[in-house]
Design a binder for these strands. Structure first.
Lengths: 162, 162
DNA sequence: CTTAGGTAGTTGAACATTCAACCTAATGCT
DNA sequence: AGCATTAGGTTGAATGTTCAACTACCTAAG
């Protein structure tokens, strides 16, 4: 937090951009979530967990790593993974090397679902974001949001972004 | 939805930008919410409702207009405003001209709270976003997210963005 | 003037997320 | 070894959001 004594309000342009960011992301995330739910009975959160697992060796990851990668609370990941386990998409077992650790592994069913869902999802991301804007502008979004993430990850230490 | 038969995946750069957007906004919104909660016992959602009301003549707005402006479901606004009414920040009364309408009005207590909370909030938005990045990049974010909002608002018709 | 259809808003249950308390295993210190 | 501290993870209750059903009112067509 800066320690100005006078508040520096946003000017009209910044105000508009900021509001667009809030509204735009709300709308976009809602849309992506809807697409996945209607098409595959999967929430965006669940989908993202499947994606992260699919990228790892053995399609598995420790709960804490999953939480850090998604920037979700451990509790949230526990609940979500528990639901997904009930649905047969994931299995959990204790880590061999660390008695505290729990490893979440994607089942074949989970993999199949991801394979089926991904094309729709990517297409939706393109249609509602990437293909909608100038390439350079989109790169700028990346720079800005990376800066934000870097800044805020500090509070929530030792995380690897990927 | 485009009707390509082959999925056009995101390339590595787009992938990174997209992931930064998801993580960055998550982190940012969480942080803004935390700041408001800890400082003033107000959620970001509640804060935004106060802001919208404060901008209107008479510090009041119809429930539906509030819902449209924030892109929240009517149900969500009903619940949130009900809580805020219990907390003494807002009052509700029926609209004179339309028997169905309900008008939410900010109380003086709500106004005072907003006046106290706003400087912290704006400072936080600057520290964690606006002042963190290049001005042109931030303008690009505005363009991109406006395009997204315009595209997606169509599904959810007759809304005025402001 | 009546009825069909849409709009505004609420309700309560189901669901998802947060929060605080808790347990267990690892680590570090003496 | 013995004890305190920290990290990984879960639990259940409280909170917030969504969803579907419902009421009341407005509007327009016959």
């Amino acid at each position: 937090m800066s320690d100005e004594t006078e508040t520096r309000w946003l000017d009209a342009t910044q105000q508009r951009s900021w509001r667009a960011l809030v509204i735009g992301t709300t709308l976009l995330m809602d849309r992506l979530d809807d697409d996945l739910r209607k098409g595959f009975g999967l929430s965006l959160t669940e989908y993202e967990i499947l994606v992260r697992l699919s990228e790892r060796e053995g399609r598995q990851m420790r709960m804490a790593a999953l939480a850090d990668a998604l920037r979700h609370s451990r509790s949230r990941v526990t609940h979500t993974v528990a639901r997904m386990e009930r649905a047969g998409l994931i299995e959990r077992c204790t880590a061999a090397d660390d008695g505290r650790g729990i490893i979440a592994t994607m089942t074949d069913e989970g993999w199949d679902l991801l394979v089926r869902a991904a094309p729709l999802h990517v297409t939706s991301v393109r249609d509602n974001l990437v293909d909608l804007c100038d390439e350079d502008d989109f790169a700028a979004v990346g720079r800005v949001m990376n800066a934000v993430a870097d800044r805020l990850v500090g509070d929530h230490p030792e995380v690897d972004i990927r």
